[in-house]
């Protein structure tokens, strides 16, 4: 290849575009050295940093996912508790209302019975007093009739 390339440069004693010499192997050695240096200074440390970050991110993501699931579980749990508590309070309110209703009815019944009883008693008292009054009135009327009869008879 070299001779062919140099033929293309025939007439140029030294130099030229296609002047191949020891630059070639030395440059190759230089590039190989650069590869090793860059590998230890750049590719390996940066790769390690990037991969560490990637694993950190995936671990944190898994962690966060777990936490999220836990939070969701807790939320469902609390929701359930809340629902139960609500139902219970509803029941308590209902019970209390019923209880109140019952007490009201009882009190009302007792009061009505009391009132009836005292009215009955009052009526009975009034009746007996009226009977007494009637009886004493009758007695007076009889006595007065007798007296009138006696007086009239005596006068005649």
């Amino acid at each position: 290849m070299t001779s062919w390339l140099l033929l293309a440069e025939a007439g140029v004693p030294e130099g030229g575009l296609f002047d191949l010499d020891a630059t070639l192997p030395l440059m190759a050695v230089q590039v190989v050295l650069l590869t090793f240096i860059l590998n230890s200074l750049f590719f390996r440390p940066v790769g390690r940093a990037v991969e560490e970050r990637e694993s950190f991110i995936s671990i944190s993501r898994a962690d966060a996912k777990q936490k999220l699931a836990q939070a969701e579980r807790l939320e469902a749990d609390l929701r359930e508790q809340l629902k139960e508590a609500r139902q219970q309070s509803q029941r308590l309110i209902l019970e209390a209302e019923q209880e109140m209703d019952r007490l009201y009815r009882e009190a009302l019944a007792i009061a009505t019975a009391d009132a009836n009883a005292s009215r009955e008693q009052a009526r009975r008292e009034i009746d007996s007093q009226r009977d007494q009054a009637m009886a004493s009135l009758n007695k007076y009327a009889d006595k007065l009739g007798d007296l009138i009869v006696t007086r009239l008879l005596a006068a005649s």
């Binding site: 240096i37 860059l38 200074l41 750049f42 440390p45 940066v46 790769g47 390690r48 940093a49 970050r53």
Partner: peptide
């Protein structure tokens, strides 16, 4: 190249900043 690489990898952090960002992009 070496100067850039040495400056950029002197202190590798988990939150990249400055030259480290550029180097990680290249990587």
């Amino acid at each position: 190249l070496l100067a850039l690489v040495v400056v950029g990898t002197r202190k590798l952090e988990r939150d990249p900043r400055g030259t480290q960002n550029l180097l990680e992009f290249v990587w």
